[in-house]
Amino acid sequence: MQLVDQAKVKSRMQTRLKQNKVLKGVFFGTTIFALVVLVILLYRILTQGIGYLDLQFFQNFASRFPEKAGIKAAFFGSLWLMAVIAPVSLIIGVGTAIYLEEYAKKNRFTTFIQINISNLAGVPSIVFGLLGLTVFVRMLEMGRSVLAGGLTMSLLILPIIVVAAQEAVRSVPKELREASYAMGATKWQTIKKVVLPAAIPGILTGGILALSRAIGETAPLLMIGALTFVAYLPENLLSGFTVMPIQIFNWTSRPQTEFHDVAAAGIIVLLAMLLIMNSIAVLIRNKFSKRL
């Protein structure tokens, strides 16, 4: 009658339970690994860079002497770049999202645009650099300018913004749209006055995260020829420029280890800026997720 040998099951149970426990530990270990690396990375950078992080560091331009090297040009270059990227990518990205969510018919062309956007998100950033170099720097003759860099980076983060904005627009309850239409509002009035205001928190959150991605990018800007040794601030959109990641790259590639410490100081500034931007994004998300 006894089909299952209970004793055998019991003894196997012991090993199985032990196995489960051990492997739980292993999986936890793999999870913690990433965390440990993050801690080491941050610790190293802080201890290396903190010594160079003083007021002078923000006031000085690039220099051949580590103790005189500063991040002023790169810091303001990054701000200039943001000033180009933010409006360009937000306008095009949100426009695309609204088109796809509110106006586009469900046809082949729409599917094509959608697939195209998700593929664009997978193109290596350096390839965008090649595009920027050919189209903006050479064909449109913008030169190695803030404008060329900003437009290139706008295209790079466009897919991220479109996807975030689409999600935000999609999550606006249809009841709100109905209420507006039922008052005799036109489609555009409804989008402008109801859909967009309700979607703004999501759009901003996604937009800031995308922007912080752009601020940390190096490769495409190297391609379009952002300079690595700049001793002035950009004056207009057609000025040459450098940005923080490129300045950090430049310091990192120098053989003198003192410059590595300067690079670490630059990284602290860059990470602090990203931290601030991300915190703002999280704040916006938390503040508005209560409503709606």
């Binding site: 309850p173 009841e175 709100l176 109905e178 209420a179 507006s180 039922a182 109801v194 205001p197 309700a198 409503r291 709606l292």
Partner: peptide, 8 residues
């Protein structure tokens, strides 16, 4: 409408 739908 059935469900109150004021704007936010």
């Amino acid at each position: 409408f059935q469900k109150p739908n004021p704007f936010p």
